[in-house]
């Protein structure tokens, strides 16, 4: 699952160095990524994550997504 998530980010040109985001993500791209992850993993991000830049750290992103899917990262 981590690979699937990484592929989504990579296909959208989002890059990480040592798990830290090095790409600038604008608001439209943010929406688009959130939607793609929701579709891919059949999840819905609850309000608590809306104010947070969940893409900032890849480990944190995995933790959130897998938490919503119900799996351990």
């Amino acid at each position: 699952m981590r690979d699937r998530l990484f592929t989504i980010m990579e296909d959208n040109g989002v890059e990480y160095e040592d798990n830290v985001l090095v790409t600038e993500i604008d608001s439209i791209q943010y929406m688009s990524l959130m939607v793609e992850i929701e579709e891919e993993f059949e999840i819905e991000f609850p309000d608590m994550f809306l104010g947070e830049n969940i893409f900032e750290n890849f480990d944190r992103l995995c933790e959130i997504v897998f938490g919503l899917v119900g799996e351990v990262a």
Binding site: E10, D11, N12, G13, V14, I28, Q29, M31, S32, L33
Partner: peptide
């Protein structure tokens, strides 16, 4: 095309 170039695609 975007996937090949590894660039984001968005639409409104």
């Amino acid at each position: 095309i975007c996937k090949n170039f590894k660039k984001p695609y968005t639409a409104i």
